[in-house]
Design a binder for these strands. Structure first.
Lengths: 221, 221
DNA sequence: CACTTTTAAGTGACATTGTCACTTAAAGCT
DNA sequence: AGCTTTAAGTGACAATGTCACTTAAAAGTG
């Protein structure tokens, strides 16, 4: 079955859980498809499933009272939602929202099955813990970047990671501000500066990289 | 035994693990005492124990290349070190340091015992997951505060949480800057402003709160 | 005790980033 | 073509961070 292979490829630990521990994940979980732009969880939601993302990407962010937002991390193929997992275990509220950025295919493992797997399979536990560790590192890295790195560096990094000379980035300055935890005007100014230097070409909803090396040079220090 | 009661009081989940699941934590773990100012882990360290803090406090922080530091969180009585736990499981490096802020008494559970408990006791797993969830929330809250909250608010909050009208705070502006992820000069300026308003009294290494309500009023918005 | 050294805090000038109250312009819609 | 919505630009200003110092308190030392 095609899906099985995809899943095993994305979650190597689960492969072990299935082969060694006789865990039949596919049988007891449900494959779900979620359209782009769906809020899959927000503060106060109760969570009844352990979610593994097979295809697509989920944006996890938090919002200040004044409406400003910052993206905490993305869950993409091969990732799982540790916050809902925490909910699963400790039933606490989390001050964050999760929204699908693309159409998403996910595997939902119901809470009782999740707990059974946790008890029975060391490989499954490893997979779950690994997700936790990943998120912790991502969050710590985010804290570091927010508090230490200058915006031009972080912006250049984002541009290089999300586009290249022939593949323009389709996003708004506002979305970028949210991604980097800054303000739209600041991003606009910075991008304009990059444009003046001939490093990018700006148009509504699109950023084209015109000088990759110059941007990369910023990162190199 | 006195220690047993202390531990069970601090870690209610472990109580369950012991009574329900017959886990003999005290027998298989070691009580260790660590003097103040000891670096208990830093980047690249390997970790061989699951650590539960019984008495005292550990400061977990990260450092930028330019030397600036920011405190990520503190592990105090009843807390466990999830980062070393992650290490325990996934053997990855974490870009953080942990230093004891006081003399610390901790319970060290060796890796094999830890894994056995994880397999055998649901309550133990809950305890471990709970720690993870806590850290995740603390980190998310930190990200929110750093990116959204103004410094005067955060500083006032810190002062109120760590001192009162009759118990002065003994710390340096530098340590405070690290705690809040800011720069010493900025903290000094802000404190001086508070002093000019008659809210605090400053001296070398000491901050006395002289107007609790005014500070609290800042937080109230 | 006077002196040197170390550590904490203050200072002013300046750079970066965030905020506010707008304006301008492009893309969609009817 | 004219409206509406959304994206982006703008200038003034506030808040925060950085730098290169100075000042001063505490600790160590002969």
């Amino acid at each position: 079955m095609e899906l099985t292979n995809t899943i095993l490829h994305l979650f190597p630990k689960l492969n072990e859980a299935i082969s060694k521990d006789g865990i039949n994940i596919l049988k007891h979980s449900q494959q779900i498809t979620i359209p782009e732009g769906t809020t899959i969880f927000h503060q106060g939601d109760q969570c009844l499933n352990y979610l593994l993302v097979i295809v697509g990407s989920v944006k996890v962010f938090t919002r200040a009272e004044n409406g400003r937002e910052i993206v905490l991390y993305h869950i993409s193929s091969g990732g799982s939602c540790v916050l809902t997992t925490s909910c699963l275990i400790s039933s606490e509220d989390y001050p964050v929202e999760g929204v699908t950025e693309t159409d998403v295919v996910a595997l939902a493992i119901p809470k009782p099955i999740f707990e059974q797997y946790m008890a029975e399979s060391k490989a499954f536990r490893k997979q779950v813990f690994h997700s936790y560790g990943d998120r912790l590192i991502k969050l710590i890295t985010l804290v570091e970047e927010i508090s230490f790195a200058k915006l031009d560096i972080r912006l250049a990094k984002y541009l290089l990671e999300n586009g290249s000379v022939n593949t323009p980035i389709r996003t708004t300055h506002q979305a970028l501000a949210t991604e980097l935890g800054s303000a739209r005007e600041v991003i606009s100014r910075q991008l304009k500066e990059f444009e003046n230097k001939g490093w990018v070409l700006l148009s509504r909803g699109k950023i084209e990289i015109t000088n990759h090396d110059a941007l990369a040079n910023l990162l190199a220090h």
